[in-house]
Design a binder for these strands. Structure first.
Lengths: 115, 115
DNA sequence: ATTATTACTTACTAAAAAGTAGAACATATA
DNA sequence: TATATGTTCTACTTTTTAGTAAGTAATAAT
């Protein structure tokens, strides 16, 4: 296990970036994480993880437009790179494959995903 | 993120134990890992990870019968605990759910797994 | 006997992931 | 102007995961 890969929390955040699309900025990501997992996260943990993901080349980001809302500091909008998407996909395929081989999980329903 | 959970390598090994069933002993697990991932692992890494998984309550094990093969030291056979299976299942469900929400991945094919 | 092979065990180290703390900034409202 | 709100940033610490090293054991083959 040498290559740069994804931790669990990292993978979740990466996916949330993909899900949130144009709304993928740290605060929103943190909120979404909490609502999807019922677990608390500190915003700092999210920021440092997003940084790590960027350094690893899985994410890029750019500053969004200034908003005229209260607290309207400009948001940094994240998006998944091609590399990030590829790694995510590989990770998914590998897991689907394993689950499928484990009798306790194999519903037979995942088979045709590998059509 | 406080609760005891699974690292990536741990999750893979846990699943391999489930897949290998009666053949789930460290050496075989290491071989299977290499064949399924095309990555090398050291047997020591596998042993220490299996230990960790046992301490966390995800696995149990017992010594198998002595075999009359060359190098026939008794094997320690691992199996997944109910707790291990539950955690594995939760992890799977959560991931399936996220993948399904990410447009780049959503084939629509995973939907009905949550029927 | 000696060596090769299949295995386990344990204590340790290294690396990576996760989380914390504290500061800063922009805007709106009171 | 002072305060609340929504937000980013980064250096640092802690915790967890992954991996190494070195030894032990049992058996078969030479």
């Amino acid at each position: 296990m040498k290559e740069t890969k994804l931790g669990d929390f990292e993978e979740t955040l990466l996916l949330l970036v993909g899900i949130l699309d144009k709304e993928a900025y740290a605060f929103k990501i943190a909120e979404e994480f909490e609502s999807q997992t019922q677990r608390a996260v500190s915003i700092g943990a999210v920021h440092s993880t997003l940084n790590r993901l960027s350094e690893k080349g899985f994410l890029t980001s750019e500053m969004g437009e200034a908003t005229a809302e209260r607290g309207g500091r400009r948001k940094r909008i994240y998006s998944i790179t091609a590399h990030g998407e590829r790694v995510l996909k590989e990770s998914r395929d590998f897991k689907l494959s394993l689950w499928n081989q484990y009798p306790a999980f194999a519903t037979g329903k995942l088979n045709f995903i590998f059509e």
